[in-house]
Design a protein around this nucleic acid. Structure first.
Lengths: 206, 206
DNA sequence: TGCGCCATAAAACATCAGTATAAAACAGCC
DNA sequence: GGCTGTTTTATACTGATGTTTTATGGCGCA
């Protein structure tokens, strides 16, 4: 039952971290959900942070930034797909692949002790992928300030729509990120960026 | 010395809340900074939340959303000014007027127990002002989904650039929101939104 | 059977949070 | 000076957190 318990702990930890972020998650809740004793987290992983890193490592075993349907698509379509995927995965309930995005977006809007690890492990690939896409669309090098600004704008917007529950509730109660609304938001974010990139790309100034 | 101590507590609380947000701020740090005893917060204000609300009430006595130079300007200019002001104030060190924005943006990216009060008191005016501006530029009613989406995009981007320190540091170390960079970011956020609004406004489809 | 090891459990521990209390210090006024 | 109410202090309480310790149960194996 040893490995079994370890697995249960990992699974529970993944859920709780994805739901609440690193700081707000408590080892006691994780253990309760895993039907395990509080001491077992330290027994198996050392401490809370090490558990978190293990969760990240496990969950990242999945695709880094290769959303299905992204291969062969135009950069424009790629942008739409990746934004849509992030939003969708960030608001889905569970399912191993979506937890990855929930973790990512949670840490993104609630930076914490574990954030730096998380960033390097899970965010970097997405960030770089987005830069590649924006670079291809705009015709600018991926290191250009303009490209970086656009990518951060995208990430900032996604994080906001996906993870500022209380704010949304207060300012726009109808926005609950239903499947329909998610599509609308994704199209808004990707669409507005594409319009902007088209207008400001060097090609537009011929 | 009574009112004096109360004032010191309020000032210290404003600083600490602005720096760390409601949740991460501790009454002990506030009292230390104010050179006061831990018990005095409860003596003067009741509890931490009441202190926070008092800070909000005080700090909001300033302008709600009337940045200087906003009167009489075109909606487009208004948008640029308000975005620039938010970014600028959010990253300034202190000065009573800037604390307001730091509080706002902090709570915005780290929703907490005090968030709802905060939102209604300080965010709502900015939110409504932005909606008015976007509405005027786009020609759509301020309640339209398109307008709301745009405003949330703006707020999300500002919050991100102003308050996701660890993320920025990891992904874009050179971006430190210096005065120069702030101008660039503000122009990016406002400028891209204006391009988008121009392209999608009903007038563009004649 | 008894030894040893691994997994689990129960409980304790240390720390830090917000809060409460009771006594001390102080101020104003007769 | 001495009373009275207000302000301040030192300290303790309560609860939550991450962590550690100590004990217990099961199981293979000589």
């Amino acid at each position: 039952m040893a490995d079994d318990t370890r697995e249960r702990l990992l699974r529970a930890a993944t859920e709780v971290f994805a739901e609440k972020g690193y700081a707000a998650a408590t080892v006691r809740e994780i253990c309760t959900r895993a039907d395990a004793n509080v001491a077992l987290i330290n027994y198996y992983f050392g401490d809370k942070l090490a558990l978190y890193e293990q969760v990240l490592r496990d969950v990242v075993a999945a695709d880094p930034a290769r959303a299905p349907g992204l291969l062969g698509a135009s950069p424009e379509e790629g942008l739409r797909v990746i934004i849509g995927t992030m939003l969708e995965k960030a608001s889905e309930a569970r399912g191993n692949s979506s937890l990855r995005y929930r973790l990512m977006m949670h840490e993104f809007s609630h930076p914490s002790e574990g954030t730096v690890r998380m960033l390097e492990i899970t965010m970097r690939p997405v960030y770089d992928k987005l830069r590649t896409l924006v670079s291809a669309i705009s015709g600018l090098p991926a290191t250009h300030d303009h490209v970086r600004l656009c990518v951060h704008s995208l990430l900032g917007q996604v994080a906001h729509f996906a993870h500022s529950g209380p704010i949304m509730e207060a300012l726009w109660p109808e926005m609950k990120l239903t499947a329909e609304q998610r599509k609308m938001v994704a199209e808004h974010i990707a669409g507005s960026m594409l319009v902007y990139l088209r207008e400001t790309s060097p090609a537009a100034h011929l």
